[in-house]
């Protein structure tokens, strides 16, 4: 019994070490972001005092990182705009597709499902050049609409596959009884199925939001002017400067981390299904 006890403690310690490694970059980001400017060149691990000056400067001091007078609030707003519009569009079209694939039986159903799954797994960097050409061709270069459109590549297959899986778990009899009561298919979806599926739709929306939020490559090939930058490009631009202002850079990174981290941690229960796109049975 004693040996068992030591074994347990050893395993717990391994996990604790892992937890410390996880904490390492976060510890530095937080303490660098909260460090007063004069403290930056000391070689201390702990800051001498804490201040929110970096966060304040990032938003209100227009000269941060010599960035043509654009506040960090602008990329924050841009990322939000792109993520919300890509998600909104995608949830609408994906709800219909996912519902049809789960509830209707028709020829080609399995083929369409596989097509969507394939699109979900396919890495977009293979087609990045063609997408760049496309954006130029339709005149959406340097526009947030262009970025949002490109994000559909990632978000639409994901939402469709997720929602298909979710609707599959809803008993078919629910739709049937709604239709016996005189609902059309659309009526059954809107009045009966959607209200019961609200958690599934909401979690698909939240995942899709975070997917769009963390995408960088498409912003990189589309955007050029500072007032159009999304968060990843804004942070990159701060690094490209000659003198990196680490305090502000870390503050910016923490601001970009907060929304998805809060959403994910609040929704942990649903995450497993999301991560494997419904592949692991529960």
């Amino acid at each position: 019994m004693r040996a068992k006890r030591w074994q347990r403690i050893a395993l717990f310690l391994i996990l604790l070490v892992l937890a410390l490694i996880v904490a390492l970059p976060l510890y530095w980001a937080v303490t660098i972001a909260l460090r007063p400017g004069a403290d930056m060149f000391t070689r201390n691990i702990a800051p001498s005092s804490l201040t929110f000056q970096n966060f304040y400067d990032l938003i209100f001091d227009r000269d941060w990182a010599g960035f043509q007078g654009v506040s960090f609030g602008v990329p924050l707003k841009n990322s939000l705009l792109v993520a919300v519009s890509a998600t909104g569009f995608s949830i609408i079209v994906s709800t219909f597709a996912g519902y049809a694939l789960a509830m209707f039986s028709f020829r080609g159903r399995e083929l369409v499902s596989s097509y969507i799954l394939l699109a979900y797994i396919f890495p977009p960097f293979i087609i990045v050049v063609s997408l760049f050409r496309f954006i130029n061709l339709v005149g959406l270069k340097d526009s947030l609409l262009g970025v949002a459109l490109l994000h559909l590549v990632i978000v639409v297959p994901y939402c469709s596959w997720m929602l298909r899986g979710y609707f599959l778990s809803i008993p078919k009899s629910l739709e049937e009884s709604a239709m016996i009561d005189g609902c059309t298919r659309m009526g059954a979806l809107l009045r009966v199925i959607l209200p019961v599926s609200a958690p599934g739709v909401a979690s698909a929306a939240i995942f899709s939001f975070t997917l769009s939020w963390q995408e960088m490559l498409f912003s990189l090939i589309t955007l050029e002017s500072h007032d159009k930058f999304t968060l990843p490009i804004a942070l990159l631009a701060m690094v490209m400067g000659d003198l990196v202002q680490w305090g502000k850079l870390m503050a910016g990174a923490l601001i970009s981390i907060a929304p998805p981290a809060i959403l994910y941690l609040a929704l942990q229960r649903w995450i497993v299904g999301g991560l494997t796109a419904g592949s692991v049975k529960r």
């Binding site: 970059p25 976060l26 530095w28 980001a29 660098i32 975070t210 939020w213 963390q214 960088m216 968060l231 990843p232 942070l235 990159l236 690094v239 680490w246 850079l249 870390m250 910016g252 990174a253 970009s256 981390i257 998805p260 981290a261 959403l263 994910y264 941690l265």
Partner: peptide, 13 residues
Amino acid sequence: TIPLFAGGILFLW
């Protein structure tokens, strides 16, 4: 939960 690009920035420091 940390966006890829932000993780890169943290490790940069």
